[in-house]
Amino acid sequence: MDLPVVWFLLIALLWTGYLVLEGFDFGVGMLLPVLDRDRDGRHDDRRRRLLINSIGPVWDGNEVWLIVAGGATFAAFPEWYATLFSGFYLPLLLILVALILRGVAFEWRGKVDDPRWRARADAAIIIGSYVPALLWGVAFANIVRGVAIDENKQFTGTLFDLLNPYALLGGLTTVTLFALHGAVFLALKTAGEVREDAGRLAERLAVPTLVVAGAFAVWTQLAHGKAWTWIPVAVAALSLVAVVGATRRRFEGRAFALTTVTIVAAVVLIFGALFPNVMPSTTDPAFSLTIDNASSTPYTLKVMTWVAVGLTPFVLLYQGWTYWVFRKRLTVEAIGPNAGLKPVVRQR
């Protein structure tokens, strides 16, 4: 196979890994203020800690998929990386700030035993999960839709061009899909009341997600699809329909497998619709970035192929092992007292 094609597929694979894995931990973050409520409707810090700990050992490893996807795009398609990152400047700035605050909030939240400290960390986690979940959808929708690119491969649009109805629907799709994916993950990963509540929430989220994601998939297919991309559209739709059934009957493992299939199908649809472009130009199709005019040299691609083929299996192996080690369901009862330092009491 042609090397740029191989790398187009590998980049799609890296994004799949990222969106599937960080998708559920974005979902957990977004659902924090909903699923932390006990049966009396009060926010319960022990439940909140349970939710955060459910992704504790893995969120950082999940985020590395983004770093590698970014680095691989830089190495394999420098022109794509340059145009995309300089063009989508403000959304990426927002994503970075969100990911920064969210990451330190995870690590620092439990370090001080003070409700105000925790409230700030939780705000960072919740907002820091919503913002990237929304903006990745907006970004990918814009990539498929095409943006203004001139003959020098420069983005000439504005921020407001990126906020078109189709892209906003894309953002809404990732938000709902990740929320569902997160709820399904929590139903699979916890025990007791949180498991029941997550299961119920997943059931409630399934139909709206089906509607939103279905609309986005069909719009994508009709506006940008190829004949064969009806297949991922159908797979995504059918798996979401099956998720509705699975969440009703509380088939937790199956539901998680199905939301995973949905995300994979969505990435296949996006990249399938894109191919062989990587960033179509709405200014003039001749200015579009393609896998050929945006790629690195065959030598670099060959080197990178060896590196990726040699290392990715190990990554999958030890990341899979992490999930195996921490496979047990978590319960609120097992949560110990808060180990953080007591807040400083100011002396007058």
């Binding site: 680095g71 830089f74 670099t300 990178m304 290392l311 992490t322």
Partner: peptide, 21 residues
């Protein structure tokens, strides 16, 4: 990009995944 991207991508795959996991 043809040159500089490679060590960055290798760093992610070979080192950063290990570190964070």
């Amino acid at each position: 990009g043809d040159v500089f991207g490679a060590p960055l991508a290798i760093e992610g795959l070979a080192a950063f995944f290990v570190e964070s996991t």
